[in-house]
Design a protein around this nucleic acid. Sequence first.
DNA 1: AACAGCAATGATATGATATATCAGCAAGAT
DNA 2: ATCTTGCTGATATATCATATCATTGCTGTT
Lengths: 151, 151
Amino acid sequence: MKEQQLNKILGKAQDICNHSGGRLTSKRKGILELMLLSNVPLSAYEVTDKYNKSTGSSMAAMSVYRILDFLETEQLVHKLSSTNKYVACSHIACSHTHEIPQFLICGKCQSVKEIAIAKRIADELEQEVANAGYKLVNSQLELQCICEKCS
Amino acid sequence: MKEQQLNKILGKAQDICNHSGGRLTSKRKGILELMLLSNVPLSAYEVTDKYNKSTGSSMAAMSVYRILDFLETEQLVHKLSSTNKYVACSHIACSHTHEIPQFLICGKCQSVKEIAIAKRIADELEQEVANAGYKLVNSQLELQCICEKCS
DNA sequence: AACAGCAATGATATGATATATCAGCAAGAT
DNA sequence: ATCTTGCTGATATATCATATCATTGCTGTT
């Protein structure tokens, strides 16, 4: 990722936080930047190590969990519940309203692609769920795949 | 669940194992029975406790993990990766070939319903994934829902 | 500038989930 | 009867996550 692009995203993240009343502190910003620069999802402990190594600090994992929770609340990062890892949102700099993210997770290289599936499919899925007597509350899907490079 | 029904399922499980060459030992059978009788998914450690309490034994969690892995390989139980819990397959006694399971997980009472979604939807989903350059390897979906009773 | 209030972070402990490894045992094959 | 293979025991350790209380530091008010 080019530095210019990174700065644009971080600027947008700042706007989002200003708007919501959250504070994008330097630590939070540092964690977000690190997430944006990673090609693969990271566990909270991996984030901790990376942050500490790159900054020479010694933040505890506890703090990282809190910061990741904050970033998740602001929808700047997403948590993949199937792998217990975190990824930066791919659409921070996009102006469109936030859609429910769907993740394609490569089983070989662990790379993740965030896509938006056709609304029609999501609707059909919701209908199926309704037929079974349930109500869908979150249609974030995490799909196990093989990416182009690895296949 | 009626005892007659339970025995039918366990018999079918035995057949499945015979066919695959796996051994449905008494411990494995005990764990499977316990899973079948549970209304909610159980973690490996919860299974361990239940098993030890109901049988007076003291099996280690390690063994339970191994047994759950075995049962999963035989498709007699499924693992929910979003919650790190295990459920007995709802279709052991069915004669139809095994379909890819989809799970509706109630966020309030934790109950789980295993359904089969329309093949058309699964196909469309696969097509979307293909459009993104990925290949779907497992279309097991775990959907966060609210069940009828809880809504 | 001093203060109060609150949000963010530090520090420590503990709980929950999962895997690695090696040893011993049991069932079926020769 | 012995051998091979797969199952289980036992122990250690890695990994993921939350609880709790103390401290720091920003922000708005006076």
